[in-house]
Design a protein around this nucleic acid. Structure first.
Length: 656
DNA sequence: AAAAAAT
């Protein structure tokens, strides 16, 4: 047993029960004392500089970071990988004294922190946008040799897939940028930094710009255009955005950029201590989503020296511990495993400068809220206002916004509409199917799908069911009847889950039966058809599910099986389809009109928030405390949400 | 009522 346990914890059982009922007094328990005790070594420099003000951002330096790096002679003299501690030299007041995060531990094989202080940055470097990281990051020339060993996450020169892959898995950048032109955008909050139009206007640095090019991102999506300047200005952010449109990049770019230009003394992990101290934490609700974010973040941080590590449950913890020991700047995690790591004192949050919650409304709903609150408020994470907090989600009900505002300080609210201004890209169908007929009905759909497919490229079909048992049962039935199906749900082990997802993505098993574990965030290219075999009880879940298709400007089909068990969904489903310019079957309209189902909408709380199901409005606007507050509204491309309730504006749905 | 998330 870990020493912290025997020292600080009476028993595992007690710890578990306390987790379920966290109290503010946890701060002073033996547990948290032991956490404090096992902390990262003291900083050699004061805490991070105050975040740059909006004013700084409003008038950005015209000199780009890359330009400066270019202008310098920049001798990227290849340094031996195992450079001795002294090779970095004492602190000098020039840019080349910067030590990229991933190299900061290289020298610490031998010297304890006390005997050999690592190089410090020149004070003038801190927070200077043009200070950059000097010649080492190059001005667009060949990357320094010492990074050549970093595996290329873009898969350019390596990793021939073991099996034939029908679809190019790396071709995940087929975003239809044209479709983003007239998307409605709304921002509110004090002194909102102006949006940018191109990546060139954003001072992200040469290395990051290279990766943006490798990703084939031509220009920023609306989410990126707005969120990146806001984040670079140091502001907290609550953003509603569509996943397929580059949401991950919208919070990763500023984080990576901020870490690269930040004070270099913040070591991810120092010799002698086994406690990793990441500078950024990204939380997500499912393991697969964490994996996906990690993969994306690794691409963005390729050859930047910024280390990204992922930690989630269901997988052996040993590899994750090894990864953490090698140093971590950005930690992507699911809550449970992170709590485990914190209890083992293998991770400390004391150096966190950036906190990002993906699918933030899910992270703050009943199931996750206690854990997340514990991580954010009852561990050693710097308080709001000191760290920078970025919340991203598609749906942000007023009450969740209110809860989320506990984590934020003077934040900006950003809402970005979807591609094509409605779900017209997703053809939604609803069919009345009795429970007993569902399987044969599904078979008809799959047959039709198979017949219409071309070149042996079976289109991917994602089938959502309500229960884990139902998923197993349906998968089994499909396989028995000759359909290549697999399944993903929480009762399958992690290996099975990951294999199922890979097999589906590659087209090897073009039918995936899933519970809601796959409803959010997962970016699976080429999903042509989403079948709601069992409708969810919450219209928001429906929106997330059908959003697995019709992504990034491509079209898709969503079919729902409706019967008497779904009566509570009739009204909200009919409304949603109407708002999305879909043809609503007459029987559904009649169904929805029945008084007993009128209020419907699953457990949708449409009450206080003014019926804003998608949280497209800043909840602060509903209260007096917000005042005039600048109220900076910005409607890109002339579209707008319309005057009335957001729900009626024709822009909802399929927000991830 | 179900799903997810720690061992």
């Amino acid at each position: 047993m870990e020493w912290t346990c025997s020292l600080g914890f009476p028993s595992r059982t007690l710890r578990f029960s306390r987790k379920l009922h966290p109290t503010t007094t946890d701060r002073n328990t033996a547990e948290s004392r032991s956490l404090k005790k096992k902390q990262c070594p003291p900083r050699l420099l004061p805490p991070p500089p105050p975040r740059r003000s909006h004013l700084t951002m409003a008038a950005p330096s015209r000199t780009s970071w890359a330009d400066v790096a270019d202008a310098e002679p920049a001798p990227p003299a290849p340094v031996p990988a195992a450079a001795p501690a002294t090779s970095n030299g004492p602190a000098r007041a020039d840019r080349s004294s910067y030590v990229p995060p991933h190299l900061r531990n290289r020298s610490s094989n031998a010297p304890p922190v006390s005997s050999a202080p690592p190089p410090r940055a020149a004070p003038g470097l801190l927070g200077r946008p043009t200070g950059g990281v000097g010649g080492r990051f190059g001005g667009g020339g060949a990357p320094p040799r010492r990074w050549d060993r970093e595996p290329n996450p873009f898969g350019d020169e390596e990793e021939v897939p073991a099996e034939p892959v029908p679809f190019d898995e790396h071709q995940n950048t087929g975003i239809n940028f044209e479709a983003y032109e007239d998307i409605p955008v709304e921002t509110s909050g004090r002194e909102v930094p102006p949006a940018v139009g191109t990546f060139a206007e954003i001072d992200l640095g040469a290395a990051l710009n290279d990766n943006i090019r490798r990703c084939k991102y031509v220009r920023p999506t609306p989410v990126q255009r707005h969120a990146i300047p806001i984040s670079l200005a140091g502001r907290d952010l609550m953003a509603c955005a569509q996943t397929g449109s580059g949401k991950t990049a919208a919070f990763c770019f500023p984080i990576i950029s901020g870490i690269m230009r930040g004070p270099p003394m913040q070591r991810s992990q120092r010799g002698g201590s086994r406690t990793a101290c990441p500078l950024a934490l990204i939380l997500s609700p499912t393991r697969e989503l964490s994996m996906q974010i990690h993969e994306e973040a690794r691409k963005f941080s390729y050859q930047t020296g910024v280390r990204v590590v992922v930690a989630y449950g269901g997988a052996p913890i040993t590899q994750q511990l090894r990864d953490l020991e090698r140093g971590v700047d950005i930690l992507v995690a699911t809550p449970g495993r992170l709590v485990d790591l914190l209890e083992r004192a293998r991770v400390s949050l004391q150096s966190i400068r950036y906190l990002a919650l993906d699918e933030a409304d899910r992270m703050l709903d009943m199931g996750f809220e206690p854990q997340v609150r514990r991580i954010v408020e009852q561990m050693d994470m710097p308080p709001r206002g000191v760290r920078q907090t970025l919340l991203f989600s598609a749906t942000f009900p007023g009450e969740i916004q209110r809860m989320a505002s506990d984590f934020l300080e003077n934040y900006i609210f950003l809402a970005v509409g979807r591609v094509g201004s409605s779900t017209e890209l997703i053809a939604q169908r609803v069919e009345f199917v009795q429970e007993a007929d569902k399987r044969s009905h599904l078979m008809d759909l799959l047959h039709a799908q198979r017949d219409s497919s071309e070149q042996g490229k079976q289109a991917l079909t994602l089938v959502f069911v309500e229960t884990k048992r139902g998923a197993d049962s349906l998968e089994n039935w499909l396989c028995t009847n000759g359909f290549p199906a697999t399944s993903i749900h929480g009762d399958r082990n992690q290996q099975e889950r990951e294999y199922a997802l890979r097999s589906f993505k590659s087209g090897q098993t073009p039918i995936l039966v899933a519970t809601d574990v796959a409803a959010r965030g997962l970016d699976i290219p080429h999903v042509a058809h989403v079948v709601n075999f069992d409708l969810p009880n919450d219209i928001d879940d429906y929106v997330h599910r059908i959003g697995r298709t019709g992504r990034a400007g491509k079209s898709g089909i969503a079919t729902a099986f409706f019967n008497d068990n779904n009566s509570s969904m009739a009204k909200s489903l009919a409304d949603l389809m109407q708002e999305s310019n879909q043809e609503v079957p007459a029987w559904l309209t009649r169904y929805a009109a029945r008084p007993s189902y009128g209020g419907g909408g699953g457990r949708n709380r449409r009450g206080a928030g003014g019926g804003s199901r998608f949280g497209g409005r800043d909840f602060r606007r509903e209260s007096s405390s917000f005042g005039k507050g600048g109220g900076a509204s910005d409607y890109a491309g002339g579209s707008s949400y319309g005057g009335g309730g957001y729900g009626g504006a024709g822009a909802p749905s399929a927000w991830d």
